[in-house]
Simulated assay, not measured.
Amino acid sequence: MNAQTLFQYAGVGTTVIAALVMVKAVWQINTAKVWKEEAEAQKTRADRLQQDMQEIKERLTRIEAENQRLIELLTALDPARVTTLRTQ
């Protein structure tokens, strides 16, 4: 085997190794993109759920205030009935 043949094999081997490195790099980049997109989707979902939870809390606060006002009105109209309803 002469030097020229050896260099040809080395050139082919280097090309194959470079191609494998490029394929690995592309695969890693694509994997990172997929994970980044998934993380962004989960963050968007979490933000939406947080907003929904805040809305539910606000609605509950309004309902509790309205119930308290209704109890006050009912108590003003018929205190005995309120006492009876609370003991049941």
Rank of each mutant, 00 (worst) to 15 (best):
A65V: 12
T87V: 06
Q68P: 09
V12Q: 12
T5C: 05
L74H: 11
E72Q: 15
Q54T: 13
N67S: 13
V82D: 02
E64C: 11
I63K: 12
L20H: 04
M22W: 06
R45L: 06
L77V: 08
A41L: 00
N30D: 08
E40L: 02
T15Y: 01
V16K: 11
L85N: 04
A76I: 01
V23Q: 09
L70V: 08
A18L: 12
R45G: 01
M22I: 12
E38T: 00
A76D: 10
E72I: 09
T31E: 09
A41R: 02
Q68L: 15
V26S: 13
A80T: 09
L73S: 10
A32E: 07
M22G: 11
A18P: 03
L60H: 14
I63F: 11
E37L: 02
K43P: 00
F7Y: 14
P79R: 03
K33P: 00
Y9I: 10
T15Q: 13
T31W: 05
T87N: 09
A10G: 12
Q8W: 08
K57Q: 15
T14I: 11
N30W: 08
E58Q: 14
Q8P: 03
G11Q: 14
R62G: 05
E40Q: 03
R69E: 15
Q42I: 00
V82R: 03
Q42W: 00
A80L: 07
E55W: 03
K43W: 00
E37R: 03
A10M: 15
L49M: 08
T75F: 12
